[in-house]
Structures are given as structure tokens and as C-alpha cells.
């Protein structure tokens, strides 16, 4: 997760001119850097702004606290984990260097490969299920009527509960003998939801969606409210109805919001752990053992810290590659405004 955020921060820092530039913008309404199709005059102004600001750019000392924390709690542990992955260590005594054994074992481990697929599947399911629902709900909640505010507040409640509490709650609700499935046999059959692979993956995706859709709804609500009203007015004059307005104005305008939300979903998907720990414990068998849970199992249940470190490194690499890919594919790194041309 940290790696993705770092990636995004680094990207945005590299591409984005100093935000303090707007301070020097006499108009104040539309900062120069937001317009990529700048005219010659605009470019002049931008240059002037930048040279004026260079002198007050904060020094490196300001980065010290963050650097110290990041080094202590991210870089140092990451390096230690990398070293541990070449050792055999059960937590007692000193780690023994064993070369590449953990890595070759991992390479031949069917559970590891399966866990990566399961992580990918759960992440994809999360995005596919949550995105449409939260876009629709978010756009709906962006209206200003009072009943919407009340309903949106109620709908926000799952986000306030801890993931653990939510998982325990659904575990009880889905009990095959005393929960919902026992009263809805036509839908759930014998209620063996957590005893089959498809059932338990479905439950994990559902509980994840129940918990996280409100967050993304909130993001989309904010995004939808930022869409300039003038666009809708123009479309209305052209005779576009609600549906056409949604597809031709709201959705395109929400492009960057969609990317933000998806990045969060992918990060959340890859780091899913609590729901699996409480709802399925990786079971039945290894059918929901996603990579993060597999790492926990190897490290803290089987006390194979060397093998667990190797899994952790694989997760770091996969997550970094994925985030790079997403940033590239979506054009997020260019940070273009959707208000362009207004």
C-alpha cells in the first residue's frame, strides 16, 4: 500500500508545478498550470509565476520527519524482510542463511500461485461490484434535497464500523442453521455458503462491497458535486434528458474520480485480510487463501518467517507493478483537469 502511495506522490511531485503558483495568479480563478492548452501569454505568466515562487520553496528540512518515519517503518523493515527471505527462522534463535530455498519452494508452491489468482479475483470482483453501485449512489446523493442527506448519512454507517465487527456480524447473519439462509432456502439451498469455494468468495466480495461502497459513494458524491452546473444547463437547453446528461456529462467529468476510487479499491483488495481471517480463515481448505492471508499463515501460524518474508516481497513487487500499470494506463500521472476548456 505504502509503495503505491509513494508512487503516486512521486509521480505527482515530478509532473506538477508548485501549487503555490496560484498565489501569484492575478485572476485566482483558474491557476495557469491547470490549462494544458496554454497560449503564449499564459506560458509567459506561468514562467513569471514559477521564478517568483522558487525562492520560497520549502527546504529539505521539512521532509525530515516524514523521511525518518518512512525510513524507520517502511524502508528498514522492507530491507529486513528481504534479508529474512533468504533465511530459515522460526522466531527462536538466530536466522540461518539458506540461500534461495524459500524462493524455490515458493516457486513450486501451488498454494502461492493459487493465492495470487484469488487475490486478483477478489480485487477484480471488488472493483466490478462496487464501482457501478457507488457511482449511481454517489451521483444520486449529490443532489441537495433533504431526504437524500438523511439517507446518505444512514447509508454511510457501515463505513464507521470496524472491518472485524462487520465480518463477525455477517458471519452470524449467514449461519446456515440460524441465520438468513435457514429462512431463505429457495435462495441459499442448504446454506453451505462458506463450505464451497464459490460461496465463500461470493460472501467475501459481498461483505467487502457492503463495507466499502459507502466510502466510494462519498468520493463520487464529492466528484459529482464538483461538476459545473453550467454544463447541465447547456445540455438541458440542447434537449438532453437525465440519462443522456449522466452518460455524456457526469461520467466523463468523473473520470479522475473513477481512477482515484479504483486505485483505492485495488489497494484495498490486495491488502484484504480481516474479512478472510474472520469469515473463512482461508478455507474451505485453501480455497480462499489469498496472498496476504497466506503470508500471515506461514509467518504467524506456522512460524516460518523466512517463507512468509518471501511471500511478503512477492506481494510488494506485485502491488508496485500493478500501481505503476494503473498510473500509466489511466493517465493519472498527467493530472489533467476535467474542467479543461471551461
Amino acid at each position: 500500500m505504502t509503495s503505491i502511495i509513494q508512487q503516486l506522490l512521486a509521480k505527482s511531485a515530478r509532473r506538477e508545478p508548485p501549487t503555490t503558483g496560484s498565489r501569484g495568479d492575478p485572476g485566482g480563478r483558474s491557476p495557469g498550470y491547470r490549462s494544458t492548452a496554454g497560449s503564449a501569454a499564459g506560458a509567459d505568466r506561468r514562467r513569471a509565476v514559477r521564478s517568483g515562487v522558487g525562492a520560497t520553496r520549502p527546504g529539505l528540512a521539512w521532509a525530515v520527519p516524514a523521511t525518518v518515519f518512512f525510513t524507520l517503518f517502511a524502508i528498514v523493515p522492507l530491507v529486513l524482510v528481504a534479508v529474512l527471505s533468504f533465511t530459515s527462522w522460526n522466531g527462536i534463535g538466530t536466522p540461518k542463511l539458506i540461500g534461495l530455498s524459500n524462493w524455490s519452494a515458493l516457486w513450486h508452491d501451488p498454494v502461492m500461485l493459487k493465492s495470487l489468482w484469488l487475490s486478483a479475483l477478489l480485487t477484480t470482483l471488488g472493483v466490478v461490484v462496487q464501482t457501478p453501485i457507488s457511482i449511481l449512489l454517489g451521483v444520486w446523493a449529490a443532489g441537495h434535497q433533504r431526504n437524500r442527506a438523511v439517507l446518505a448519512a444512514v447509508y454511510f454507517v457501515p463505513l464507521l464500523l470496524s472491518v472485524t465487527a462487520v465480518s463477525v456480524l455477517w458471519r452470524a447473519l449467514l449461519d446456515p442453521n440460524f441465520g438468513i439462509p435457514s429462512d431463505a432456502g429457495w435462495l441459499f439451498g442448504d446454506g453451505n455458503l462458506l463450505g464451497t469455494q464459490s460461496g465463500s468468495i461470493g460472501v467475501l466480495a459481498f461483505v467487502g462491497a457492503w463495507q466499502w461502497t459507502p466510502l466510494h459513494t462519498l468520493i463520487y458524491q464529492g466528484g459529482a458535486r464538483a461538476v459545473p452546473q453550467v454544463l447541465y444547463d447547456a445540455a438541458a437547453i440542447d434537449g438532453a434528458g437525465t440519462v443522456r446528461q449522466f452518460f455524456h456529462i457526469t461520467l466523463p467529468q468523473l473520470r479522475n474520480t473513477v481512477i482515484t476510487s479504483m486505485v483505492l479499491m485495488v489497494v484495498g483488495g490486495l491488502t484484504t485480510f480481516d474479512t478472510v481471517l474472520i469469515l473463512t480463515q482461508g478455507g474451505p481448505g485453501t480455497d480462499t487463501t489469498i496472498s496476504a492471508y497466506y503470508m500471515y499463515q506461514q509467518g504467524f501460524l506456522s512460524f516460518d518467517f523466512g517463507g512468509a518474508s518471501a511471500i511478503a516481497l512477492v506481494l510488494v513487487v506485485v502491488a508496485t507493478l500493478l500501481s505503476l500499470l494503473m498510473v500509466r494506463l489511466t493517465g493519472y500521472d498527467r493530472m489533467q483537469s476535467t474542467a479543461e476548456g471551461l
Binding site: L174, D175, L193, L194, G195, G199
Partner: peptide, 8 residues
């Protein structure tokens, strides 16, 4: 029964 794996 059949659903014992969903029971704890």
C-alpha cells in the same frame, strides 16, 4: 449434514 463447513 451437508453444511457443516459453514458452521463453527
Amino acid at each position: 449434514g451437508t453444511n457443516y463447513d459453514s458452521v463453527k
